[in-house]
Design a protein around this nucleic acid. Sequence first.
DNA 1: CCAGCCGTGGCAACAACCTGCCGACGCCGC
DNA 2: GCGGCGTCGGCAGGTTGTTGCCACGGCTGG
Lengths: 229, 229
Amino acid sequence: MPSTARTTDGGVTVVRGEEEVFRRTAHLFADATSITCAANTLSSWGWTNGPRVIADGSPHDRRVPPRRRDARIRKVYRSGMLLDPSWPQRMATVLEHPGAEVRISTDEVNETIILDGRLAILAGDQRSGERSYSLITRRETVHGISALFEAAWRSATDLDVYDAGAAEIRRLAPQVLDLLGRGVKDEAAARELGLGVRTYRRRVAELMAALGADSRFQAGVRARELGLV
Amino acid sequence: MPSTARTTDGGVTVVRGEEEVFRRTAHLFADATSITCAANTLSSWGWTNGPRVIADGSPHDRRVPPRRRDARIRKVYRSGMLLDPSWPQRMATVLEHPGAEVRISTDEVNETIILDGRLAILAGDQRSGERSYSLITRRETVHGISALFEAAWRSATDLDVYDAGAAEIRRLAPQVLDLLGRGVKDEAAARELGLGVRTYRRRVAELMAALGADSRFQAGVRARELGLV
DNA sequence: CCAGCCGTGGCAACAACCTGCCGACGCCGC
DNA sequence: GCGGCGTCGGCAGGTTGTTGCCACGGCTGG
């Protein structure tokens, strides 16, 4: 068995590493008329959004797969991602495409790509370095996954709407996260930022909302997951 | 320039990826009489503690470098690591060596290895996948690093001492972390575990102590760093 | 059996955190 | 200017988290 393909049966192929996913599916992106995509972190599906940044000298340079200009592209991102400093740049790349729609979800989304309702790619867990991915072509399964995606899509809010309210928090997020991460008490943290305690807490609350967290502990976990601390 | 070595000047070599560190230094472990090591996570310096577990089929199998049996081995670990389920197994491997001493630090420690006071290996940040490492041979620098390590060593507590108090919390840690990570309130969490609220909070406090965290947010970050959630 | 030890969990006091409310201030657009 | 709008931050009242204290019960070695 080659080391890249792990399992194949009933229209489901499990592979390890996103490079392998890229190799196997890049050609399908070319004439897909509908691409839907859900991601929890900025680095997910990196190769779908432009040339991947690789340490110099690496032989793994890849480019975004070609796409029909009339393709309908829909993406759902987890809200916390807006807090990442490189988010605006990323969005610029995504929105280059004419028909791209982006929505933001407060809940966690399973990392997914669906092409034309015919192929679904599900990200699995990360073991021994490389993440596993399921490539699914079985029609019934793909339909089921599409339905789940549609539900997530409906419950997510449009980027423009969401973005409007999140400008201020984004400016302060790095500092607030730093202070929280250092275990600084609200009192001191507010002073350090030259804010009132009330406002500082407001910022923290907004942050938690953006991270979809119910408690500060959870916020810590999420922030770390997203690499914000 | 080969893609592995990044910088070389004044007795400092910066390389990327622990495999490269292994290749360059494995022979030095063989006749070192003093090995000191500080680690923040269980996966750090994985190759120094036995064959690395790699996905089947990978060509990267490596073995622990041979060592003199009379070598003095000292290791400092961050306390949170004891919470990892695979900690006991890992310790077994480490303690196989006759003169191994292990201490636990509450504070964060910079990941470091020092061989015989002649070579220091410092882990750097993680960029584009592979972590960077500095291999330092310049005598003055290594001495300075040794001094820092000695300070950390003195302030750390012996494993046996530390371990004695941490038996109970280790049993519950996974469940408590899960509850905290789900944002469950203490009240409900205690009920779910069949504990009094007071005791649950005690567990959380112990957990935070083990993680060296001052706030729950910080604990969340640390827990995530250590891959406990 | 008893004394000592330890984990438990209720109570309480306090610190920290969360939020609704509202007045103050600055910034427009009219 | 002036009314609307939005942000700020104090205050208050509530919830949640943190800790010391102590009584209770189980266990153990004498």
